[in-house]
Design a protein around this nucleic acid. Structure first.
Lengths: 154, 154
DNA sequence: GTTGAAAATAACTCAGA
DNA sequence: TCTGAGTTATTTTCAAC
């Protein structure tokens, strides 16, 4: 990961569909060099994939919420089981496995408030390992689509 | 948004860099038709962009955390001010503006635990509007990179 | 809307620096 | 590791359906 790799990563985070030529032009290098760099980054696992960013409204997901969940007992079996269950639900965008006060955070996106209520009561409440959960509606969301590389730890 | 649009969106969520030809082949339509559909989806704002998915470790962001934050007073000025402040910090990946128990959730990614501590004490604690925050470390994360379109609300 | 074929661009390969 | 020219493939346009 030299400066050139960082610059490539930054540009592809911002716009993953720009051509290799355009990428090379912005970096001041030959297209073949740029292509080889991108391939090396992919081979090394630095670039994990490319995804289109879709407006949630177009997917009929006008309501988003964050649900923090506590489960007991905090065993590997229970944690892995709930993680697998939650990540398989169509309403769930992200599952975070946490330490601290909460054990899980679920980022969910549904059609409307009725469906959010149904999700909480029909899906979550039926799981015996859940000892409590708390729901916060998302009003706004700001995302950094191109997080930069930070200085290496000393 | 007919079935064809949904299929295009799903394929581009999974792999945004596949060629238009390949996309058209999978859908059983002509490349020019596919191109026109993609352009229409972009024009309508359904497709908002394309982003490379980068391994956080390559960006020296080995430690991720979720920080729930309460601010007071809950006025528009304070909310907008904190949102702008938080989204401008290099450590912050996402800012969620919430209702309910918490006012904000920050998804942060930093080099190590020392930097997380520094972020909490040097950045957050200095803001007068913050009346409390709570930090959870992220151990694992599962993401649905291709959320499907849900049935429209009745 | 959709299509197929032509023209314009880009991707990819590879030998040499 | 980088480059540039040659080959292969794709994108893009557009007239017709």
């Amino acid at each position: 990961m030299d400066e050139l790799d960082s610059a490539i990563v930054r540009l592809l985070q911002t716009d993953a569909r720009q051509s290799n030529r355009e990428l090379a032009r912005q970096l001041g290098i030959a297209p073949s060099t740029c292509l080889e760099r991108v391939r090396a980054l992919t081979r090394r696992g630095v670039i994990r994939g490319y995804h289109a960013d879709i407006d949630p409204a177009a997917l009929n997901r006008g309501v988003q919420a964050l649900v923090s969940v506590q489960v007991r007992p905090l065993s590997r079996v229970v944690i892995d089981g709930f993680k697998t269950f939650a990540s398989g639900l169509p309403e769930v965008l992200h599952v975070f496995v946490l330490s601290g006060g909460d054990d899980f955070l679920l980022h969910v996106a549904v059609q409307d408030l009725d469906h959010l209520h149904a999700f909480l009561t029909d899906r979550l409440s039926k799981r015996g390992e859940i000892t409590g959960f708390r729901t916060s509606l998302i009003f706004q969301q700001v995302s950094d689509t191109a997080p930069v590389r930070l200085p290496a730890p000393d």
